[in-house]
Amino acid sequence: MVAQHYADNPELAVWLDRLWLHDVFRAPWFAAIHLLLVEGNGFAVSRTLLYTSPAIVRSGSS
Protein backbone atom coordinates (compact mmCIF):
# COMPACT_ATOMS: atom_id res chain seq x y z
CA MET A 1 0.00 0.00 0.00
CA VAL A 2 2.85 2.39 0.78
CA ALA A 3 4.60 1.41 -2.45
CA GLN A 4 1.44 2.21 -4.38
CA HIS A 5 1.23 5.58 -2.61
CA TYR A 6 4.83 6.34 -3.61
CA ALA A 7 3.99 5.47 -7.20
CA ASP A 8 0.82 7.61 -7.24
CA ASN A 9 2.09 10.65 -5.30
CA PRO A 10 5.89 10.66 -5.09
CA GLU A 11 6.26 14.21 -3.73
CA LEU A 12 3.60 13.80 -1.06
CA ALA A 13 4.88 10.36 -0.09
CA VAL A 14 8.33 11.78 0.65
CA TRP A 15 6.85 14.33 3.05
CA LEU A 16 4.63 11.77 4.73
CA ASP A 17 7.65 9.55 5.19
CA ARG A 18 9.62 12.41 6.77
CA LEU A 19 6.81 12.83 9.30
CA TRP A 20 6.78 9.06 9.99
CA LEU A 21 3.17 8.79 8.78
CA HIS A 22 3.85 5.56 6.90
CA ASP A 23 5.15 3.88 10.06
CA VAL A 24 3.16 5.47 12.85
CA PHE A 25 3.81 2.98 15.65
CA ARG A 26 7.59 3.42 15.36
CA ALA A 27 7.38 7.21 15.15
CA PRO A 28 8.96 9.27 17.95
CA TRP A 29 5.92 11.54 18.13
CA PHE A 30 3.61 8.55 18.62
CA ALA A 31 5.79 7.24 21.45
CA ALA A 32 5.71 10.65 23.14
CA ILE A 33 1.93 10.91 22.92
CA HIS A 34 1.52 7.35 24.16
CA LEU A 35 3.85 7.99 27.09
CA LEU A 36 1.97 11.14 28.07
CA LEU A 37 -1.38 9.35 27.98
CA VAL A 38 -0.13 6.38 30.01
CA GLU A 39 1.62 8.58 32.56
CA GLY A 40 -1.43 10.85 32.81
CA ASN A 41 -3.69 7.92 33.54
CA GLY A 42 -1.27 6.53 36.10
CA PHE A 43 -1.13 9.90 37.81
CA ALA A 44 -4.92 10.28 37.84
CA VAL A 45 -5.51 6.80 39.24
CA SER A 46 -2.86 7.12 41.94
CA ARG A 47 -4.15 10.56 43.03
CA THR A 48 -7.73 9.32 43.07
CA LEU A 49 -6.75 6.41 45.29
CA LEU A 50 -4.65 8.67 47.49
CA TYR A 51 -7.44 11.17 48.11
CA THR A 52 -10.29 8.68 48.42
CA SER A 53 -8.59 6.07 50.63
CA PRO A 54 -8.60 8.22 53.84
CA ALA A 55 -12.31 8.85 53.36
CA ILE A 56 -12.96 5.12 53.00
CA VAL A 57 -10.84 4.30 56.06
CA ARG A 58 -12.56 6.98 58.17
CA SER A 59 -16.06 5.95 57.18
CA GLY A 60 -15.35 2.23 57.64
CA SER A 61 -13.73 2.47 61.09
CA SER A 62 -16.62 4.09 62.97
Rank of each mutant, 00 (worst) to 15 (best):
A13N: 03
L19M: 13
L21F: 05
H34M: 15
G42T: 04
R47I: 12
L21S: 02
P54Y: 05
W20Q: 05
V38I: 09
S59P: 00
V45T: 14
W29Q: 10
V2Q: 04
G60E: 00
H5L: 06
A32E: 13
P10N: 01
D8R: 00
E11W: 03
T52G: 02
S46C: 00
S62L: 12
A3H: 08
A44T: 06
Y6T: 02
R47T: 09
A3L: 03
P28Y: 01
T52R: 08
V57C: 12
Y51R: 05
V57G: 07
L19K: 01
M1Q: 08
L36E: 13
V45Y: 09
F25H: 08
R18N: 09
V45D: 07
A13K: 01
I56Y: 11
V45I: 15
N41V: 10
G40F: 11
L19T: 00
T52A: 08
F30Y: 15
L50W: 12
H34K: 12
S59K: 08
Y51T: 11
V45R: 14
I56D: 07
F43K: 06
M1A: 12
R58F: 08
R26E: 14
L50G: 08
H5E: 11
R18K: 13
V2H: 03
T52C: 05
A55K: 14
T48K: 03
Y51H: 14
L37Q: 14
S59A: 11
L36V: 04
H34G: 11
S61R: 10
P10S: 01
N41T: 09
W20P: 01
L35H: 13
G60S: 09
N9K: 02
N41G: 10
H22D: 11
L37N: 14
Y6I: 06
Y51W: 15
N41W: 11
A31R: 14
A13H: 03
I56Q: 09
R58L: 13
N9H: 10
H34P: 02
L37S: 09
E39L: 14
H5S: 06
G60H: 09
D8T: 02
R18E: 13
F30A: 07
P28H: 03
A31I: 11
T48D: 08
A27C: 06
S62R: 15
S62Y: 10
V24Y: 11
D17S: 09
S53D: 00
W20L: 02
W29F: 15
P10Y: 01
S62V: 07
A3D: 13
A44R: 15
L19I: 06
D17W: 05
L21Q: 04
G40N: 07
L16A: 01
V2P: 00
V45W: 15
S61G: 04
A3G: 07
I56A: 12
E11M: 04
I56T: 07
T52F: 08
L21G: 01
D17F: 03
V45N: 14
L49F: 15
P10M: 00
E11K: 09
R47Y: 14
L36I: 08
D17E: 15
L16C: 05
P10W: 01
G60D: 02
F30I: 05
V38C: 06
H34S: 00
P28S: 04
L19A: 09
W29V: 06
V14E: 13
